[in-house]
Design a protein around this nucleic acid. Structure first.
Lengths: 150, 150
DNA sequence: TAGTTATCCTATCGTATTAGTAGGATAACT
DNA sequence: AGTTATCCTACTAATACGATAGGATAACTA
């Protein structure tokens, strides 16, 4: 399970992506996404340090995506906030660490299974971007509302 | 990331599967898998309550798989020890729970992405069994040793 | 039947993480 | 100068994690 921090980060970035060009203030994001304002501030700070957003202080300030929504993958966000995607350190591509109790890390069956899980997980998360998330959301809204339009 | 408890549980069950027919004592599993004995006891108790192993007390006692290794999936073990496989409650098939802050849970882009991740993750973990893990391990050992036999 | 061996069960504990909250410093705009 | 927004550090209550401890109970053996 993802932490609330990571979930809020995803919500904030998707909100910025959906908002299009221009910036949003912390207050706007907080209200739109129902995220506690002061907590959101910490998260935006972290997102800025990781290079996902830029910010401007003072009047007419706010946050903006540092890159296009097509260039930011969900996987990159989760990795930055949460750490590796893999279920075990010995199955991680980006942060591999053998289990010290494992006599044969190369032939450990559990590790082999977890590497397969990691590959399919990363396969989705590194391919899907903020733009995709926004688009899927709009598509689902269209599909849902069409039920009542027939 | 899985907790140590879940990882130890997987190690213990794979050890039992690899051991074949008959039982292993907590001591044997603990030594073979380098898991602290008293911690392992708690884990085996939990695995028993979840129906993965049976146990016998006293001399010639020990733990045994309750079903064949082919009939126990890695996913079932992880779910029992750790909870749902999904990254968010709103993306879980077995423990779905909408985000209370989400105005439109059906059309949330993040949720849609996470449901896709859940599906591919469960696709692997619910398909792969203890028997598969043991077999993959043996296969990897063969492949590895053959490098030195050419 | 006494002793040994193994699981069963409850309690405890130090550390780290999580999910925030608080309060002021700093920068930018009017 | 005043307002508005981000920046930064510190703090905190609650929970989870990774064990450890100690005795109760059941089963087998001599």
């Amino acid at each position: 399970m993802l932490t609330m921090k990571t979930k809020y980060a995803l919500q904030a970035l998707v909100a910025l992506a959906a908002h299009g060009a221009g910036s949003m203030t912390g207050n706007e994001i907080s209200k739109r996404e129902n995220v506690p304002f002061k907590f959101l501030e910490l998260i935006m700070l972290e997102l800025k340090k990781h290079g996902f957003v830029t910010s401007k202080k003072g009047r007419r300030g706010g946050y903006e995506l540092a890159r296009t929504p097509q260039a930011i993958s969900i996987g990159a966000i989760i990795r930055a906030m949460e750490g590796p995607l893999a279920l075990l350190p010995c199955a991680s591509a980006t942060a591999f660490k053998p289990c010290e109790e494992c006599p044969e890390p190369q032939t450990c069956g559990i590790s082999l299974v977890m590497r397969e899980v990691r590959d399919v997980t990363a396969g989705v998360l590194d391919r899907v971007t903020l733009a995709d998330a926004v688009q899927r959301s709009m598509q689902a809204a269209r599909d849902g509302s069409s039920m009542y339009q027939i």
